[in-house]
Design a protein around this nucleic acid. Structure first.
Length: 210
DNA sequence: AAGCCAATCAACCGCATGCAG
DNA sequence: GCTGCATGCGGTTGATTGGCT
C-alpha cells in the first residue's frame, strides 16, 4: 500500500548504530515499551526511523537474544524447519528461542546452504538419522532442478497448513501454489503431500530426540 | 607489510499484510 | 468496500573482518 517515508528524505540517520543510540533505545523501551515504533524515535530523541529502531531492538538489543554460534541441534532444527516452511525465516525463528529471523537467514546463506550442497555429493555414506534426513530431502527435492520449482516448500505455510495439506489454499501465495501444482501430474502431487506429511511427523517427533 | 578476495553479518529497502476510520 | 497508516517479513546490500598470497 502506502510506503512509509524514506529515512533520508526525513533527514534521519542511517547506517551502523552507536553505543549511545543503543543505550537511548534500550532505556526508552525499558521505561515505556514499544507500543508505536513510528513515534518511538521521536519520543526517545533518536534521529532514526521507527523501522530502523524496531530492527535494531529485535535483532540486537532485545534482552532475551541468544548470541554466539549455533549449536548442532539448532542447525538441524533450522534445516528441518526450512524443509517444512521454506524461506519463512520468522516462522523458523519463532521455534528457536533467542534467535532472530535475520540471524537465521544469514546463517542459512553462509553456512547451511553450502553445507547441504556438499551433502548432495555423498549419497550412501550417511550414518545418523539427521544425515539420512538431509540426504533424503536433497535427493528428493533439490537434485532435480525441475523439482525445485514444483516442490519448493515455500508453498507450504506451516504446521497448520500441513495438517490440512490437501485442502485448497486461502491466500495469493497459495493460489500460486495451485497454479504451479495444477501443471503437475497427480502422482507427483501425492508424492509431495505424502513426503510433506512424513517430514512433518518426523519434525514433530524429533523434538526430544535430536 | 600490503593488497586482494571471500566470508560474515548488521542494516536497509521494498513489498505484503492487518487494521482502523 | 476503500483508503491510508503501521508493522512485519524476506531479499539484498555494503561495511567489516580474517585469511591467503
Amino acid at each position: 500500500m502506502v510506503r512509509a517515508p524514506c529515512c533520508e528524505k526525513m533527514g534521519l540517520k542511517k547506517g551502523p548504530w552507536t553505543q549511545e543510540e543503543d543505550q537511548i533505545l534500550i532505556s526508552f523501551i525499558q521505561k515505556y515499551g514499544h507500543e508505536n515504533w513510528r513515534a518511538l524515535p521521536k519520543q526517545a530523541g533518536l534521529l532514526r526511523c521507527g523501522k530502523s529502531c524496531r530492527l535494531r531492538w529485535i535483532n540486537y538489543l532485545r534482552p532475551d537474544i541468544k548470541r554466539g554460534n549455533f549449536s548442532e541441534e539448532e542447525e538441524e532444527t533450522i534445516i528441518k524447519l526450512h524443509q517444512l516452511l521454506g524461506n519463512r525465516w520468522s516462522a523458523i525463528a519463532s521455534r528457536l528461542p533467542g534467535r532472530t529471523d535475520n540471524e537465521i537467514k544469514n546463517f542459512w546463506h553462509t553456512h547451511l546452504k553450502k553445507r547441504l550442497k556438499q551433502h548432495n555429493d555423498l549419497p550412501s555414506t550417511t550414518t545418523n538419522v539427521s544425515q539420512k534426513m538431509e540426504h533424503h530431502i536433497y535427493s528428493n527435492y533439490y537434485q532435480d532442478s525441475q523439482n525445485i520449482v514444483d516442490y519448493h516448500p515455500n508453498y507450504c505455510h506451516d504446521e497448520e497448513d500441513l495438517q490440512e495439506n490437501n485442502s485448497s489454499s486461502h491466500d495469493t501465495q497459495s493460489n500460486n501454489k495451485e497454479n504451479v501444482q495444477s501443471t503437475n501430474a497427480h502422482g507427483d502431487m501425492n508424492r509431495f503431500n505424502n513426503d510433506m506429511v512424513f517430514w512433518y511427523n518426523v519434525f514433530m517427533n524429533s523434538g526430544n530426540n535430536v
